[in-house]
Amino acid sequence: MTAALLQVSNLVTGYGGTRVLKGVSLEVGAGEAVAVLGANGAGKTTLMKCIAGLTRPWEGTIVFGDEDVTRVRAEDRPALGIVLAPEGRGLFATLSIEENLLVGASALRKRIGARQARAGVAEGLGQAYALFPVLKERRRDLASRLSGGQQQMVAIARALMARPRLLLLDEPCLGLAPKVGNDVYAALRTLRRQGLSLVVVEESTRRALGFADRACVLKLGQKVLEGHASALTRDEELLQAYFGLTSESTDVTL
């Protein structure tokens, strides 16, 4: 059995005196796409932030590849191959699209070495514009001038500039029209086909189960359900009824 790419074990963390995660474990295999579901406040974003290093775990470990990265600082994780595209996209509004992408490549030198990095950046830009052609036309525009959907494209492209082995996405369709969300997921599918491992926090159970290999549900800081997407799909109504997950609009394509 191949070792998992990411092994999160018994993560406990929170803010101030409040515990948000109360012992969460998660495994992601190489090339796998895992969806994280749950109601607001369940701890999904906190889990992402822990894996990315922005939040320190109080207990538990995070192992990436064969390295224990639990105590590694957030700014050192992209060099290892862990990249988070945060909730709300987090683009640099005063920077242009291309500048945003360039910033995304900041860790490339540490990741693949100085000599490769120059070429790597050019290559990354090329791939980004191939994946999202509209960005190429507008690459000198300020990021704040884009629509929500375009901003999400930039966020994903920016995350890709660092050549991640594991891409974390926190609610990629937040605030986007369903059709735009479909476009986003189409791009994510392309990435999956290219072998990228993904963890996606997703509000829409339908989208999540239609896209991911496996899914898990968080509730009040604990993982309450986990399984293969196909198995869970059969119980979708159950999921919605018992775990308060959102109901869908009919525009969602799987």
Binding site: P78, V83, G90, T94, V103, S106
Partner: peptide
């Protein structure tokens, strides 16, 4: 560019590998 990014959003800049 990295300085400007870090000035605007320090946390997100960390996610890109920029050391505060």
């Amino acid at each position: 560019i990295r300085i400007r990014a870090a000035a605007e959003q320090p946390e997100i800049a960390r996610l890109m590998g920029i050391s505060p």
